[in-house]
Design a protein around this nucleic acid. Structure first.
Lengths: 205, 205
DNA sequence: CGCTAAGCAGTCAGAGTTGACTGATTAGTG
DNA sequence: CACTAATCAGTCAACTCTGACTGCTTAGCG
């Protein structure tokens, strides 16, 4: 620690990049092979990194996966909010919003989260790390949902309950895709959700 | 195979009992330690069975866990339908039905299912075994739900959609308990579900 | 231009897991 | 009561994973 604060610049940058590569690889492997298959060996291979380097940054597998959790929460994984041509018509808007929400559940981060959630159940330290990270994620999801519906609809009375109902139900349905490999865009629940949203928001029509 | 069909009686019985002990142990360990922690060693220990015996019945870990899936589907795990003193008042009945449904998600079989679902995602043979078993489970859940609500309510028009919405949403919420160890009986979503059910079934009040 | 310390590569021992294998046992047959 | 074949107990080799360790490399200081 003699010259701490010096010798940085380039090194810090390299280090940051390497860490990100490792964490991205960890999440990729996590999604592809599940928690138990996400070994440090496979992750280091996926990241194209030597063992020494990986272990230098993340001294243990747990530390690595905990870091992956925070990485997941920090990354702007939900960049679906970029759509700009939302329909004017409220009914149309609701339909599109529900579809956009649902598309959100067909993304890698969703499975990464689920793998982590389940694993956290029987691992105390992972659970401790996951809880705050997951609150962040929850807020992100809510914000995204709001942007899908637009301020005109989100200000309606039953909205926040509807949002919760939709998100929890979609999570419950998305999980079935672990077994059934259907086309999410044609899920039979879509109509159900749209109808629910219409009635919840536009009942006194 | 000389005298196949003979030498049974006692042996078959013993065998059946031993198998059940092993499968019960497998599910217990699965719930307690998660998929990756459910090793054959731990299961044989929990079952109080020698390695030879376990491997005689289930030649591989995969075979054992696939069998555990079917075991789970075959067992009457949801014996909550035994309640007899359902309220007469519809509003009360709906409230109790929702609470009873929700209590269903605070049982070991739920976590066993979730562990298996997630694991099936990256294991072809497990997935193949899980799909039909899970259809059976789905039917059981639906039947249970119906019994909670009673024929008077299940015959109403919006019922089957409501049932699906409640079950998927409850699954989505129950998953958060992997991280947050709250009291399920006080879950804030209960009011939401009750209100939803009331409106869906008794709207033209 | 030598020097220091952190970053990093590659190796390895130890722990844990799986499933094969060798005999012993047991149930039921003739 | 001998005999047969399945059942079962206990051991073990092969493999995998983790994290510690040794030493090389690199960046920046004086």
């Amino acid at each position: 620690m003699r010259d701490s604060g010096a010798r940085q610049r380039g090194e810090q940058e390299r280090s940051r990049v390497a860490k990100k590569r490792i964490l991205d690889a960890a999440l990729k492997v996590l999604v592809e092979t599940g928690y138990s298959g996400a070994t440090t060996l496979r992750i280091q291979e996926e990241a194209g990194v030597s063992r020494g380097r990986l272990l230098n940054y993340f001294p243990s597998r747990d530390a690595l996966l905990v870091a992956a959790v925070h990485h997941l929460a920090a990354e702007p994984v939900l960049d679906l909010g970029s759509r700009t041509d939302w329909p004017q018509d409220k009914i149309e808007r609701i339909s599109v919003a529900v579809e956009t929400m649902w598309a959100t559940y067909d993304q890698p981060y969703f499975w990464a989260s689920m793998e982590l959630w389940l694993a956290a159940r029987s691992r105390d330290d992972l659970r401790a790390a996951l809880l705050p990270a997951e609150r962040t994620m929850g807020a992100m999801v809510r914000k995204s949902t709001d942007s899908f519906f637009g301020s005109e609809l989100t200000s309606l009375v039953g909205y926040s309950e509807l949002r919760e109902l939709l998100n929890t139900s979609m999570r419950g349905v998305a999980l079935t895709y672990a077994m059934e490999r259907r086309r999410p865009s044609q899920d039979p629940h879509l109509d159900m959700w749209k109808k629910l949203a219409l009635e919840a928001l536009l009942r006194p029509l």
